[in-house]
Design a protein around this nucleic acid. Structure first.
Lengths: 204, 204, 204, 204
DNA sequence: CGCTAACCGAGACGGTACGTCCCGTCTTTAC
DNA sequence: GTAAAGACGGGACGTACCGTCTCGGTTAGCG
């Protein structure tokens, strides 16, 4: 947890320098994370890049871990809204976003750092696993909805399907040097959920 | 590349102290990696744990990266042989091993470290991706064999299926705190390849 | 020089808060100086002890050096008036006061700090040497008066005698852990000036 | 006390780098002390001036105080031997050396720093007072010898005379900007001990 | 079997980054 | 306008490791 968490809406005007410091430091942190990863992160580099004193970082966060956690939480805010349409369309939309997020986004380069840090840092782990869990649950809910409405075949294991869909994307991002291209998401969805025009005949 | 690469079989007797030093240092490295990850790795800790001088490590490897790479290559040797039986059985056997490898093995705890290091270290990346690729290709070959012999349905996309199978396991290991249990590998295989007794009716 | 020097008597009423701030800050400064010396002086400690904001100190003084200088000048005001009686009595009286000043006074504990600071700080040096010089000149004048009136022997070197008298006291204060006891001042004066009853026989 | 005190004669060859490091660091320390005093001393400045890593200083000393103490002890070694001749000649010789030491010597500029530090630092105090005491005792012994041999008048208070002699020199060094010139030492000695050719007529 | 060269542990070295403390400046809010 | 509170950029603190180096003390295996 950061020393001084983002304030609630009801509070008075704080010193605007605080806002500014937190912002420039987090921006520098994202850049550094993307460039050298969690392990290579240097507080002094962040301070230098942000043009602040090292003490200013420690004034707002308790250390590298705290800073990274809070910065990742900030990035998470950028997450897409679900969208509209059939379940199949919404699933495709979410996965397309995820694929491009893992392919292009500056923020995505912190994912490997996060995966690694989560193994050895309790609080990073909590953040990482909770965040993943939320994303996954949203997908499971969506798939369950499709099963209930009959759009998806009735014997679909929503949980396993969700893990296969996400699994392929993360496998390609983390274990290979060829991230899953967003153009092929349609193909992946068709494979896991069955193609739309033969939905009645499909088994997975 | 290590300063003194593992010798081929044809070489003369080296000083046995060298052999011993390399061994105890790599053992200590595995223990440290499992305990604190790649980022937390300290050469001095390894030296202390191995009971050797720091210089002895640098005498045999060029640094942390070189040492870790060579140590991981050593671990890789432990990889299972394919086994026998039907394609479905062999696939299940490999995945069961992989699941338990990712769940239990001391060595598995270096996987997250490897994932992270691969992003920022060219040579670790090369090692990591090549190793993954070999594993994946073996699986693809196996699935293709199944398609050709008619054991698996003809429209199976071997590559995508391989990525789904492995993807679920790695997703669970890297992105969640509940690694995929080896007991459920049969279920996973049935879902992706279709259950054996209805193989003719399955589409993936 | 302090930013806002102590006002002369003719000035308008200043904000009484200013007067109060200056006072409590200087009191805290004396306490800190006595406690940790010039080198260990911390502006933040003074502010905390005085119960004022750090900025308040900088509003009235330009920094540590300025604050200390102005504080020492304040202490100096406490200096004794010469007194009355024979020259020998007045000399004894002044030295007795000086001995007890160097032995007991809270303020005396800043003397070593002053000695040290004078070597490296031009303005502290000016203050320190001027103050010492005034004290010394008063003593020389007094001794010269004694020589002229015939109370002291005619070949007395007033300047050297003054330095011997003060020298012993300061030597004991600064160079040993046994300050010169005020009870023995009579003995010292007798040694340097000759004992009163044999004044005609004495040579120094 | 320094972490690794100067070794005894019987020991084996140590790493010669240790000797060298201690030397260049102490040389740099003397220079810095002379330049900025004890209060202004910066470990990083010493390290920079000596061309060593900061850690090397902490490898050999426990901190600023320890380093300064050990450095002053080193300087003390340079102290003159008593010399020969009559007591009066030897006293004059010692004081002449002390006067020039306090006037010229690079090392003398650490004296004010020492005086100040002794007030607030127990171990510096011990060193400072002990050193002063040894010097003073040597002078007292010398004067006592003169009294016993009849070279000096019998009613001389050796202790007080020693303090007057040293007192004048230190008073001039520490309390004024005009250190006592070594050429006038003869005059001072004559005043305190009586001039040689009228020794029988002298008091004090 | 003894010599010599390689290998070893130990740890000093010049560095870099850590997280903490204080400096002197600057900004805000309360009175 | 003055004050308390405290954020800010800067820089030194003392610690922990880095990767390099030097040192004697083994130990191997060739002569």
């Amino acid at each position: 947890m950061s020393v001084r968490p983002t304030r609630g809406e009801g509070e008075q005007n704080p010193d605007p320098r605080i806002e500014r410091s937190r912002r420039v430091i987090q921006e520098a942190t994202v850049d550094e994370l993307a460039g050298v990863g969690y392990g290579g992160l240097r507080i002094e580099s962040i301070a230098r890049r942000a043009g602040v004193g090292k003490a200013t970082i420690y004034r707002h966060w308790n250390g590298k871990q705290d800073l990274v956690e809070s910065t990742l939480a900030m990035i998470k805010e950028d997450m897409v809204a679900p969208g509209e349409g059939t379940v199949r369309e919404r699933v495709t939309s979410i996965l397309t976003w995820l694929a491009s997020y893992l392919t292009d986004s500056r923020a995505s380069s912190v994912m490997p750092a996060l995966v690694s840090a989560a193994q050895f840092d309790k609080s990073v782990a909590q953040f990482h696993f909770r965040f993943t869990s939320e994303r996954r649950q949203a997908m499971i809910d969506l798939l369950s909805e499709g099963v209930q409405t009959g759009e998806l075949r009735s014997d679909l294991d929503a949980e396993l399907a969700a893990e296969m869909l996400a699994g392929v994307l993360f496998y390609r991002r983390l274990m290979t040097d060829r991230p899953f291209p967003s153009e092929e998401v349609g193909n992946l969805v068709a494979t896991v959920l069955g193609s739309a025009d033969r939905a009645d005949a499909l088994t997975i």
